[in-house]
């Protein structure tokens, strides 16, 4: 069992400029452990995207710290990001702008592969260096992930509607990290259910769901240790949502990537996440194993959020997470068991 979290947020506070400044995130802390899938849920505007951008270093928090393998993550400034930090990747919300409209999708996926190569080389150098020097104190450099020379067995991402990965079987499958990973853009595209010929096409030739899958493939091609999905499926229709969520989870499981899956839709997150973190107005109000939070929500806001999910009997209660005028406590409930 790993002894330190892969990515941890410590008391993150983010203000957006304004008069008065908008406090989007107010003292959020959580850890992401290797290989787990965590769902971050909450209503629109509660600060989920802001949190995602902080965790990737795209914005610098007012206070607080993001630690990646125990080391503070430098915010992305004018300089380029060193391979040390490219283990954190993100898939964005909007299929319309998650890919460069003027580049062939094959080239964009190839960027992810190049990133994986660069980082593998970097980590090899790091391990070689720490092996040479006896005084090495940096134990954070993990062994490099080998890049599979060719595409491994292709898992079908379209195994019927609503087919979510069975986490246990996926986890039980032998996975020498990266062995199954495709190594060419064409193989990646085939891996996500497109054809090799699609590599030479432009993003405008694809549907929203296909674009999100391509964006996910580009991020996964970089063999990230952490993949953050900022509502990667919320702009898609229901059946496509299932496919993309399924695909992301299977790919993450194959590569041993930790997944932070952000959504305002608890019903999908429940099916993919090991743990849930519930955010409300910039605060974490509840967290715990998915099944516990699902079956026994403690915080009134979580209860309201669960109540907003249309009942399976088709009675169709309207989604209305926070009725207007109702406010909830911002203190986190603590699970005693």
């Amino acid at each position: 069992m790993p002894d330190q979290p892969l990515l941890s947020a410590r008391d993150i506070v983010v203000d957006y400029p304004g008069t008065p400044p908008v406090r989007a995130v107010d003292g959020v802390s959580f850890d992401l452990w290797p290989g787990e899938v965590v769902g971050l849920v909450g209503e629109s505007g509660c600060g989920k995207s802001t949190m995602a951008r902080v965790l990737t270093g795209l914005i610098k928090p007012q206070s607080g710290q993001v630690l990646y393998r125990g080391r503070p993550l430098p915010p992305l400034g004018l300089r380029g990001r060193s391979p040390e930090w490219t283990g954190i990747q993100m898939v964005f919300q909007d299929p319309g702008s998650s890919l460069n409209p003027r580049r062939r999708v094959g080239d964009q996926v190839a960027d992810g592969i190049a990133t994986a190569r660069l980082r593998a080389a970097y980590e090899r150098r790091q391990t070689a260096r720490s092996a040479r020097s006896l005084t090495a104190t940096d134990s954070t450099a993990a062994p490099p992930r080998s890049l599979g020379p060719e595409a491994g067995p292709v898992l079908d991402p379209t195994t019927g509607p609503g087919a979510y990965p069975d986490r246990d079987t996926v986890a039980a499958a032998p996975r020498a990290a990266g062995d199954q990973a495709p190594a060419t853009p064409e193989a990646w595209l085939e891996r996500i259910g497109l054809t090799a010929r699609d590599a030479s096409r432009f993003p405008r030739h694809f549907s929203g769901g296909q674009r999100q899958r391509i964006a996910a493939a580009r991020a996964m091609a970089a063999h990230p240790n952490v993949l953050i999905g900022d509502e990667p499926i919320s702009a898609l229709d229901a059946s496509t949502q299932a496919k993309v969520a399924h695909l992301m989870c299977v790919m993450a499981a194959e590569l041993g990537t930790s997944l932070l899956f952000i959504s305002h839709d608890l019903s999908i997150v429940r099916l993919v996440a090991d743990r849930l973190i519930v955010m409300y107005q910039g605060h974490v109000v509840e967290r715990g194993p998915t099944e516990q939070v699902w079956s026994d929500p403690l915080h009134p806001y979580t209860k309201a959020l669960l109540g907003a999910i249309p009942a399976p009997d088709g009675a169709g209660r309207l989604p209305e997470a926070a009725p207007p005028g109702v406010t909830y406590s911002l203190t986190e409930v603590v699970r005693s068991d």
Partner: peptide, 19 residues
Amino acid sequence: EFVASGRLLGFSPVRSMRV
């Protein structure tokens, strides 16, 4: 977002600008 994705993949500012 796609520029941010590129930066996360380690694009240098010059590369990001050019590509």
